[in-house]
Computed example of a mutant assay.
Amino acid sequence: MPPQTTTLPYRPRLVTTPPRTPVGTAATLPRQPAPAPAHTRATTAPARPDHRPTTQTPPRSGVWIDRTAWLATVDGRALQLTYLEFEVLDFFVHHPGQAHSRQALLSSVWGHQADDATSPDVRTVDVLVTRLRRKLGPEHRYRIETVRRVGYRYRPIIDPAVAS
């Protein structure tokens, strides 16, 4: 240490509440620390080729859901879905052939219980399914089938090569 340097004992700063500013006076905000210089910032190493996330390519036909990419496609084209539309379509695709009541969809997808006072009306499901059918297009709108007095069922594409 150079001879002109003075050392002071270390005293930790105590966190105190700032004094109240009287009404009618300007309050000053505490200064934010300056960002670290570019040469001292930590840099991340590029990902190794063997640890790349695997991405699947959607099939050219049918409805396809990829939850990791939050992507739904029909016949290879991406669908512009809201959060709940995506959740309902994902629920249908992962439970094909099963009839689901409106109340079951509300509890499974929306997370509401039957006796919950804040639960939306069961007809909310009808509106969402109508919008979902419209977005699926005329070729695939029949995949979500109405089961009268029960609810809805998803019918997947049956591949003739697999069926025979």
Rank of each mutant, 00 (worst) to 15 (best):
A99I: 13
R102N: 09
A104W: 12
S107F: 12
S107N: 10
S108L: 07
S108R: 09
V109D: 04
V109L: 03
W110K: 01
W110H: 13
W110D: 03
G111I: 09
H112F: 15
H112V: 11
A114K: 14
D115A: 14
S119K: 12
S119C: 14
S119A: 15
P120H: 08
P120L: 04
D121F: 10
V122Q: 08
R123Y: 13
T124A: 05
V125C: 01
D126C: 03
V127Y: 12
L128P: 08
V129C: 06
V129R: 00
V129D: 02
T130I: 06
T130C: 02
L132W: 09
L132R: 01
R133H: 07
R133N: 04
K135C: 10
G137T: 00
P138G: 00
P138H: 05
E139K: 03
E139G: 00
R141W: 07
Y142M: 01
Y142Q: 08
I144G: 05
E145C: 07
E145G: 06
T146S: 07
V147M: 03
V147N: 03
R148P: 15
V150P: 08
V150T: 13
Y152L: 03
Y152I: 07
Y152W: 15
R153D: 11
R153Y: 11
Y154T: 01
R155W: 02
P156A: 00
P156W: 05
I157Q: 00
I157W: 04
D159H: 07
P160R: 01
A161V: 12
